[in-house]
Every structure is written in structure tokens, then in C-alpha cells.
């Protein structure tokens, strides 16, 4: 199954949850197809073919 993680194509073995994609989710936010997935829902949100996933965290900034 092919998805895009932070703009890069990624091959996943099959349907996986957001939780499996981001095992250490401290300080991280995830959006799937432009919608934020709350951390509480990571373990029950399954990724699908062609999903565009954004994984972001804090960087230095002004």
C-alpha cells in the first residue's frame, strides 16, 4: 500500500494505524489528508491507499 509521508512516497505492508506509523509520538502532531488526527484516535485510525500524511513537530523559529 502506497502513501505519502511528509511529501515522500512510502510503501506500507498493508493497512496500518497512525499509531504504528508514529511509535514515539511525543511532541508530534499528525494530519491525514489535511485533517488533524488527535493523539487519542491514533490507535483506531487506519491509513488507506494514497493517503497524504503530515507528521510535524516543533523546530527553531521566531
Amino acid at each position: 500500500m502506497k502513501v505519502h509521508v511528509n511529501g515522500e512516497p512510502r510503501e506500507l505492508p498493508g493497512p496500518v494505524t497512525v499509531q504504528a506509523l508514529v511509535p514515539d509520538g511525543r511532541g508530534v502532531a499528525v494530519a491525514v489528508n489535511g485533517t488533524v488526527v488527535r493523539a487519542a484516535a491514533w490507535s483506531v485510525t487506519t491509513l488507506g491507499e494514497g493517503d497524504r500524511i503530515e507528521v510535524v513537530t516543533a523546530h527553531q523559529g521566531g
Binding site: N6, G7, D24, R26, G27, V28, A29, E54, V55, V56, T57, A58, H59, Q60, G61, G62
Partner: peptide, 27 residues
């Protein structure tokens, strides 16, 4: 202290958060 939100990568920037949290200053 201000921070930006950017895509994660493998450069270990996650520890920026640990560094800032240790200062006790709100983000």
C-alpha cells in the same frame, strides 16, 4: 519562547522540545 511547526525528519529536532521544556519557559 517561540517555535515553528515543521515536518519531522531524522535529524533529532525532537530534542528541541526536550531542551525547551527543561527551561520551564512556556512555548
Amino acid at each position: 519562547v517561540t517555535v515553528s511547526m515543521r515536518r519531522t525528519s531524522d535529524t533529532g529536532e525532537g530534542s528541541l522540545l526536550d531542551t525547551l521544556r527543561a527551561t520551564g519557559v512556556p512555548l
